[in-house]
Amino acid sequence: MRRAPALATLALAIAAALPFLIGDAYIYTLGLTICVFAVLASGLNLVYGFAGLLSLAQVAFFGIGGYGTAILVVDHGWSMGPAVLVAGVLATVAGLVVAYASLRLSRHAFAIVSLVFSLLCVIVARDWVSLTRGPMGMPGLPSPTIALPGLPPWQLSGPRDFYILLLVYAVAVLLLLYRVMRCRIGRTLLAIRQNEPLAQSMGQNPLAYRLFSIGLSAWVTGMAGGIFVFHLTIVDPSIFDFYYLETMLIMVVVGGPGSFWGVLGAAVFFSAIPDLLRFSADLRLVLYGLVLIAAVLAMPGGVAGLLRRRRLRRWREARR
């Protein structure tokens, strides 16, 4: 993992150079999928890998961001930036309400309530027709224009433009999450996950840290949903599809909960895999399931856990 920052810089340089080199829309669609999943998986990593909360509401935050943005833009004529920001805040508020209500009971209660919340979101999206237009979804999201001071307006059209936008967004979010995970806040979250009573005996307030992690995770996940629907140009109940949740979970579990680089690596790998496995679309989820079972059996703690155990063995040998 020591070489991870250098590798990531190299990958980022290549990713940033792509729009100048390649014109293939397929590559950009794959690239923007990787960017979205890098954000989703890292957001779940903060909540699950650091705060120790199995949040099954991540897909709900993603969908709330998507629907929130679409409603503000299509029905109320908002522009992209404010709509995405506000939809992100909406996802945060939803996350905080779910977390505050259930964490007062237990971590297990949180997992169950977060799952129920995700299922509830599907029902709302499908059945609250006056708000969401029901199963048909909300089509017709316009191609947005981004106007930054000092630069000519940039109208996003096509995968290449959305790839650039999502790459910038993903890099910003990953830098933010990296900083949070590596500073004292991240260490305290890890401590609370490892031993909550001990952290309390040291004066830490687990609820405050957990709410922070849920809030931040919901915000970045919701905004990713908000940007993503512009690429799709439509939002419908399938944005709450458990495919997204399963994929995020696999990325975190295989990458190693609590490891920034492990999860990021797994996010890139598993975003690319479905396309590499195009010959067996029906088998995709089965293969995912098999990979998850194999990962849990062979390397509990994921790839990062494997490396940690190696480090531990070295310490134990040195101790003898």
Binding site: R184, R187, T188, L190, A191, Q194, N195, P197, L198, A199, S201, M202, G203, Q204, G258, R308
Partner: peptide, 26 residues
Amino acid sequence: TRTFQNVRAFDEMSLLENLCLGAQQR
């Protein structure tokens, strides 16, 4: 502050990190 009957530490963290967490609040 207190310690526990069943000894507790943040197992995956270094001793230095374990101790620093104790002082953090102050």
